[in-house]
Amino acid sequence: MKPVAFVEGIVAPLERADVDTDQIIPKQFLKRIERTGYGDFLFHDWRRRPDGTLDPQFVLNRAEYAGARILLAGRNFGCGSSREHAAWALADHGFGAVVAPSLADIFRENCFQTGIVPVELPEREVESLVGRARQRPGYRVLVDVAAGTIAGDDGFLARFELDPFRRRRLLEGLDDVGLTLQHDREIAAFEARRRAELEGP
């Protein structure tokens, strides 16, 4: 994974709560066996009209949010299916951070794995950001992973929590599997202990 220290860019507000991963990436696009190429299908059923053309009303299709890097969402974003494709599709589309009052557990984990910064902020602060993004098209913020802050060029500033281990992983782009493999001896010892336990005296 590539290190992520900052995410800077336009904010796109998706004002819906309980957005499930079936909406983020509908199942008809899960049949690929690659990790890439999902960006075009992000929010497919909302982004496209029944005839396949883009719905100009949908937030991601609006000119003022073109190239957005930060997605603002409602609470419980990413609930439902565990498909990591949801995080891949967001990343593939260009998003580097998702900001919401709350993110579903598995989705949050998948964000870390994909190198998307999951930012949970109090509802009030999210609403304040939504207001800014709507009033000032092209509104930009800077998500600073090391500092745990999100700042706008208009003085908006909020702090978010990241546990130190996750923060370090994002900042250094560490290979999770590689880290665990360093504990190979302990894993082997655990396996031996467990075998003895299962086989009994």
Binding site: S82, E84, I106, E109, Q113, V177, T180, L181, I187
Partner: peptide, 22 residues
């Protein structure tokens, strides 16, 4: 519990997962 594909890969390689206790 359910996991994402990167974690599937993690379990393949290590039979373990680094996890915070829920």
């Amino acid at each position: 519990f359910g996991i994402g594909t990167s974690q599937v890969e993690h379990v393949f390689a290590t039979q373990c997962l680094p996890l915070e206790k829920p």
